[in-house]
Amino acid sequence: MEYLVHLSILFAIYAMLVVSLNLVVGYTGLLSVTHAAFYGIGAYTTAILLTQFKLGFFVSIILGMIITAVISLLIGLVLSKFKGDYYALGTLGFNTIIFAILLNWQSVTRGPLGIPGIARPEIKIFNFQFLISNNFAFLILTFAFLILIYYLSYFIINSSFGRVLKAIREDEKAIEVFGYNVLYFKLMIFIVAAVMASIAGSLFASYITFIDPTSFTIHESIFILAIIILGGLANLRGAVLGALFLILLPEILRFVGFPPDIAAQMRQVVYGVILILLMLYRPQGLIGEYKL
Protein backbone atom coordinates (compact mmCIF):
# COMPACT_ATOMS: atom_id res chain seq x y z
CA MET A 1 0.00 0.00 0.00
CA GLU A 2 2.77 2.38 0.99
CA TYR A 3 4.48 1.56 -2.30
CA LEU A 4 1.30 2.22 -4.25
CA VAL A 5 1.10 5.66 -2.63
CA HIS A 6 4.72 6.31 -3.61
CA LEU A 7 4.01 5.38 -7.24
CA SER A 8 0.86 7.51 -7.28
CA ILE A 9 2.79 10.56 -6.08
CA LEU A 10 5.45 10.08 -8.77
CA PHE A 11 2.68 9.58 -11.32
CA ALA A 12 1.00 12.84 -10.30
CA ILE A 13 4.29 14.76 -10.54
CA TYR A 14 5.03 13.38 -14.01
CA ALA A 15 1.45 13.96 -15.12
CA MET A 16 1.88 17.66 -14.28
CA LEU A 17 5.04 17.81 -16.37
CA VAL A 18 3.46 16.01 -19.29
CA VAL A 19 0.17 17.93 -19.26
CA SER A 20 2.01 21.25 -19.12
CA LEU A 21 4.51 20.41 -21.86
CA ASN A 22 1.64 19.19 -24.04
CA LEU A 23 0.33 22.77 -24.06
CA VAL A 24 3.56 23.84 -25.79
CA VAL A 25 4.35 20.80 -27.97
CA GLY A 26 0.91 19.41 -28.73
CA TYR A 27 -1.32 22.47 -28.82
CA THR A 28 1.07 25.15 -30.07
CA GLY A 29 3.31 22.87 -32.14
CA LEU A 30 6.62 24.02 -30.64
CA LEU A 31 8.96 21.05 -30.14
CA SER A 32 10.46 22.00 -26.78
CA VAL A 33 13.10 19.78 -25.18
CA THR A 34 13.84 21.96 -22.18
CA HIS A 35 11.04 21.17 -19.74
CA ALA A 36 13.31 19.42 -17.22
CA ALA A 37 15.16 22.72 -16.80
CA PHE A 38 12.06 24.46 -15.40
CA TYR A 39 11.24 21.39 -13.35
CA GLY A 40 14.76 21.72 -11.95
CA ILE A 41 14.47 25.43 -11.25
CA GLY A 42 11.31 24.78 -9.22
CA ALA A 43 12.93 21.91 -7.34
CA TYR A 44 16.10 23.85 -6.56
CA THR A 45 14.23 26.99 -5.47
CA THR A 46 12.21 24.96 -2.98
CA ALA A 47 15.25 23.01 -1.82
CA ILE A 48 17.38 26.10 -1.22
CA LEU A 49 14.64 28.15 0.42
CA LEU A 50 13.64 25.30 2.71
CA THR A 51 17.10 24.22 3.80
CA GLN A 52 18.95 27.54 3.98
CA PHE A 53 16.33 30.20 4.58
CA LYS A 54 13.85 28.05 6.50
CA LEU A 55 10.94 29.52 4.58
CA GLY A 56 7.60 27.75 4.31
CA PHE A 57 6.87 25.26 1.55
CA PHE A 58 4.06 27.26 -0.02
CA VAL A 59 6.14 30.44 -0.04
CA SER A 60 8.85 28.47 -1.82
CA ILE A 61 6.41 27.18 -4.46
CA ILE A 62 5.31 30.71 -5.23
CA LEU A 63 8.86 32.07 -5.33
CA GLY A 64 9.84 29.14 -7.56
CA MET A 65 6.98 30.01 -9.90
CA ILE A 66 8.07 33.65 -10.06
CA ILE A 67 11.72 32.78 -10.73
CA THR A 68 10.71 30.26 -13.38
CA ALA A 69 8.38 32.78 -15.00
CA VAL A 70 11.19 35.34 -15.32
CA ILE A 71 13.71 32.81 -16.67
CA SER A 72 11.22 31.24 -19.07
CA LEU A 73 10.26 34.71 -20.31
CA LEU A 74 13.90 35.39 -21.20
CA ILE A 75 14.40 31.95 -22.76
CA GLY A 76 11.08 32.22 -24.60
CA LEU A 77 12.09 35.58 -26.07
CA VAL A 78 15.27 34.06 -27.52
CA LEU A 79 13.42 30.95 -28.72
CA SER A 80 10.77 33.04 -30.48
CA LYS A 81 13.38 33.70 -33.18
CA PHE A 82 13.61 30.02 -34.13
CA LYS A 83 11.36 27.69 -36.08
CA GLY A 84 10.98 23.92 -36.42
CA ASP A 85 14.17 21.91 -36.00
CA TYR A 86 16.13 24.94 -34.89
CA TYR A 87 13.61 25.56 -32.13
CA ALA A 88 14.14 22.01 -30.85
CA LEU A 89 17.89 22.51 -30.96
CA GLY A 90 17.71 25.84 -29.16
CA THR A 91 15.64 24.32 -26.34
CA LEU A 92 18.18 21.49 -26.08
CA GLY A 93 20.81 24.19 -25.64
CA PHE A 94 18.94 25.94 -22.83
CA ASN A 95 18.45 22.68 -20.97
CA THR A 96 22.20 22.05 -21.14
CA ILE A 97 22.99 25.57 -19.92
CA ILE A 98 20.60 25.36 -16.95
CA PHE A 99 21.92 21.90 -16.10
CA ALA A 100 25.47 23.28 -16.21
CA ILE A 101 24.46 26.10 -13.86
CA LEU A 102 22.86 23.67 -11.39
CA LEU A 103 25.98 21.53 -11.56
CA ASN A 104 28.62 24.25 -11.40
CA TRP A 105 27.20 27.10 -9.31
CA GLN A 106 28.39 25.22 -6.27
CA SER A 107 28.11 28.01 -3.71
CA VAL A 108 24.34 28.00 -4.19
CA THR A 109 23.36 24.56 -5.47
CA ARG A 110 26.13 22.46 -3.88
CA GLY A 111 26.82 21.10 -7.38
CA PRO A 112 26.98 17.32 -7.84
CA LEU A 113 26.60 16.73 -4.08
CA GLY A 114 22.95 17.73 -4.27
CA ILE A 115 20.83 19.17 -1.49
CA PRO A 116 19.73 16.75 1.26
CA GLY A 117 17.30 17.22 4.14
CA ILE A 118 14.55 19.18 2.39
CA ALA A 119 11.60 19.52 4.76
CA ARG A 120 8.09 18.30 4.07
CA PRO A 121 5.41 20.99 3.77
CA GLU A 122 3.61 22.36 6.81
CA ILE A 123 0.09 23.69 6.74
CA LYS A 124 -1.04 26.17 9.38
CA ILE A 125 -4.77 26.59 9.87
CA PHE A 126 -5.58 28.95 12.77
CA ASN A 127 -3.39 27.62 15.53
CA PHE A 128 -3.19 24.04 14.37
CA GLN A 129 -0.13 22.88 12.55
CA PHE A 130 -0.20 19.95 10.16
CA LEU A 131 3.11 18.60 9.05
CA ILE A 132 2.49 16.66 5.89
CA SER A 133 4.98 14.01 6.77
CA ASN A 134 3.08 10.90 5.95
CA ASN A 135 2.92 9.92 2.31
CA PHE A 136 -0.82 9.67 2.11
CA ALA A 137 -1.27 13.31 3.08
CA PHE A 138 1.37 14.24 0.54
CA LEU A 139 -0.48 12.23 -2.09
CA ILE A 140 -3.62 14.29 -1.50
CA LEU A 141 -1.62 17.51 -1.77
CA THR A 142 0.02 16.39 -5.03
CA PHE A 143 -3.26 15.31 -6.55
CA ALA A 144 -4.82 18.62 -5.57
CA PHE A 145 -2.11 20.37 -7.59
CA LEU A 146 -2.48 17.92 -10.48
CA ILE A 147 -6.23 18.50 -10.67
CA LEU A 148 -5.64 22.24 -10.54
CA ILE A 149 -3.11 22.08 -13.37
CA TYR A 150 -5.22 19.67 -15.42
CA TYR A 151 -8.31 21.84 -15.27
CA LEU A 152 -6.36 25.01 -15.83
CA SER A 153 -4.93 23.41 -18.98
CA TYR A 154 -8.41 22.21 -19.95
CA PHE A 155 -9.71 25.73 -19.48
CA ILE A 156 -6.84 27.24 -21.50
CA ILE A 157 -7.24 24.97 -24.51
CA ASN A 158 -10.99 25.40 -24.66
CA SER A 159 -10.84 29.17 -24.36
CA SER A 160 -10.37 31.57 -27.25
CA PHE A 161 -6.72 31.74 -26.20
CA GLY A 162 -6.38 28.00 -26.82
CA ARG A 163 -7.99 28.26 -30.23
CA VAL A 164 -5.39 30.84 -31.24
CA LEU A 165 -2.66 28.44 -30.07
CA LYS A 166 -4.00 25.68 -32.31
CA ALA A 167 -4.25 28.13 -35.16
CA ILE A 168 -0.57 29.04 -34.66
CA ARG A 169 0.27 25.36 -34.85
CA GLU A 170 -1.67 24.86 -38.06
CA ASP A 171 -0.66 28.03 -39.87
CA GLU A 172 1.32 30.71 -38.14
CA LYS A 173 1.37 33.09 -41.11
CA ALA A 174 -2.39 33.00 -41.55
CA ILE A 175 -3.18 33.82 -37.92
CA GLU A 176 -0.63 36.66 -38.07
CA VAL A 177 -2.43 38.10 -41.06
CA PHE A 178 -5.62 38.15 -38.98
CA GLY A 179 -3.85 40.56 -36.66
CA TYR A 180 -2.97 38.27 -33.78
CA ASN A 181 0.29 38.95 -31.99
CA VAL A 182 1.79 35.47 -32.39
CA LEU A 183 4.82 36.25 -30.23
CA TYR A 184 2.60 37.13 -27.26
CA PHE A 185 0.64 33.87 -27.48
CA LYS A 186 3.75 31.71 -27.88
CA LEU A 187 5.49 33.42 -24.98
CA MET A 188 2.46 33.23 -22.69
CA ILE A 189 1.90 29.51 -23.17
CA PHE A 190 5.63 28.81 -22.83
CA ILE A 191 5.71 30.66 -19.50
CA VAL A 192 2.50 29.04 -18.23
CA ALA A 193 3.86 25.58 -19.02
CA ALA A 194 7.22 26.40 -17.41
CA VAL A 195 5.53 27.65 -14.23
CA MET A 196 3.46 24.44 -14.04
CA ALA A 197 6.68 22.42 -14.38
CA SER A 198 8.22 24.43 -11.55
CA ILE A 199 5.30 23.47 -9.28
CA ALA A 200 5.96 19.83 -10.12
CA GLY A 201 9.62 20.42 -9.29
CA SER A 202 8.82 21.96 -5.90
CA LEU A 203 6.62 18.99 -5.01
CA PHE A 204 9.28 16.56 -6.19
CA ALA A 205 12.03 18.20 -4.09
CA SER A 206 9.86 18.23 -0.99
CA TYR A 207 8.67 14.65 -1.50
CA ILE A 208 12.03 13.00 -2.20
CA THR A 209 13.75 15.36 0.34
CA PHE A 210 17.00 15.11 -1.66
CA ILE A 211 17.79 16.49 -5.11
CA ASP A 212 20.85 16.62 -7.32
CA PRO A 213 21.34 17.94 -10.87
CA THR A 214 21.10 14.51 -12.55
CA SER A 215 17.30 14.56 -12.24
CA PHE A 216 17.12 17.55 -14.59
CA THR A 217 19.17 16.54 -17.64
CA ILE A 218 18.31 16.58 -21.32
CA HIS A 219 17.39 12.91 -20.96
CA GLU A 220 14.62 13.82 -18.55
CA SER A 221 13.27 16.34 -21.07
CA ILE A 222 13.44 13.71 -23.81
CA PHE A 223 11.46 11.26 -21.65
CA ILE A 224 8.75 13.80 -20.96
CA LEU A 225 8.56 14.49 -24.67
CA ALA A 226 8.49 10.77 -25.49
CA ILE A 227 5.55 10.28 -23.16
CA ILE A 228 3.59 13.09 -24.80
CA ILE A 229 4.22 11.68 -28.24
CA LEU A 230 3.24 8.23 -26.97
CA GLY A 231 0.08 9.34 -25.20
CA GLY A 232 -0.96 11.66 -27.92
CA LEU A 233 -0.10 15.16 -28.98
CA ALA A 234 -2.73 17.76 -28.17
CA ASN A 235 -4.73 15.43 -25.95
CA LEU A 236 -4.80 15.94 -22.20
CA ARG A 237 -6.10 12.49 -21.34
CA GLY A 238 -3.51 10.93 -23.63
CA ALA A 239 -0.79 12.82 -21.78
CA VAL A 240 -2.00 11.52 -18.42
CA LEU A 241 -2.20 7.97 -19.78
CA GLY A 242 1.34 8.35 -21.05
CA ALA A 243 2.53 9.44 -17.60
CA LEU A 244 0.80 6.42 -16.07
CA PHE A 245 2.67 4.22 -18.51
CA LEU A 246 5.96 5.93 -17.67
CA ILE A 247 5.50 5.15 -13.98
CA LEU A 248 4.30 1.59 -14.50
CA LEU A 249 6.91 0.56 -17.08
CA PRO A 250 9.81 0.07 -14.62
CA GLU A 251 7.48 -1.99 -12.42
CA ILE A 252 6.48 -4.16 -15.37
CA LEU A 253 10.12 -4.63 -16.32
CA ARG A 254 10.98 -5.59 -12.77
CA PHE A 255 8.02 -7.94 -12.66
CA VAL A 256 9.28 -9.65 -15.82
CA GLY A 257 12.49 -10.29 -13.91
CA PHE A 258 15.17 -7.86 -15.08
CA PRO A 259 17.72 -6.92 -12.41
CA PRO A 260 17.36 -3.25 -11.39
CA ASP A 261 20.41 -1.82 -13.21
CA ILE A 262 19.44 -3.52 -16.47
CA ALA A 263 15.78 -2.61 -15.97
CA ALA A 264 16.74 1.08 -15.97
CA GLN A 265 18.44 0.66 -19.35
CA MET A 266 15.64 -1.57 -20.67
CA ARG A 267 13.27 1.27 -19.92
CA GLN A 268 15.26 3.52 -22.21
CA VAL A 269 15.34 0.85 -24.92
CA VAL A 270 11.55 0.63 -24.69
CA TYR A 271 11.20 4.43 -24.93
CA GLY A 272 13.48 4.54 -27.94
CA VAL A 273 11.74 1.71 -29.76
CA ILE A 274 8.33 3.20 -28.97
CA LEU A 275 9.39 6.54 -30.46
CA ILE A 276 10.68 4.86 -33.63
CA LEU A 277 7.59 2.69 -34.05
CA LEU A 278 5.24 5.62 -33.41
CA MET A 279 7.04 7.76 -35.98
CA LEU A 280 6.90 4.92 -38.50
CA TYR A 281 3.31 3.84 -37.98
CA ARG A 282 1.37 6.35 -35.88
CA PRO A 283 2.94 9.81 -35.71
CA GLN A 284 0.00 11.29 -33.78
CA GLY A 285 0.50 8.95 -30.80
CA LEU A 286 -2.08 6.60 -29.33
CA ILE A 287 -4.99 9.02 -28.98
CA GLY A 288 -3.44 12.22 -30.25
CA GLU A 289 -5.17 14.86 -32.31
CA TYR A 290 -2.15 16.35 -34.02
CA LYS A 291 0.62 14.88 -36.16
CA LEU A 292 4.16 16.18 -35.91
Binding site: L31, D85, A88, I222, L225, A226, I229, Q268, V269, Y271, G272, V273, I274, L275, I276, M279, L280, L292
Partner: peptide
Protein backbone atom coordinates in the same frame (compact mmCIF):
# COMPACT_ATOMS: atom_id res chain seq x y z
CA UNK B 1 14.25 14.07 -35.85
CA UNK B 2 12.08 12.34 -33.25
CA UNK B 3 12.70 8.94 -34.88
CA UNK B 4 16.45 9.54 -34.71
CA UNK B 5 16.04 10.59 -31.07
CA UNK B 6 14.40 7.22 -30.42
CA UNK B 7 17.17 5.41 -32.29
CA UNK B 8 19.79 7.21 -30.24
CA UNK B 9 18.07 6.44 -26.92
CA UNK B 10 17.57 2.75 -27.74
Amino acid sequence: LVASLGTFTA
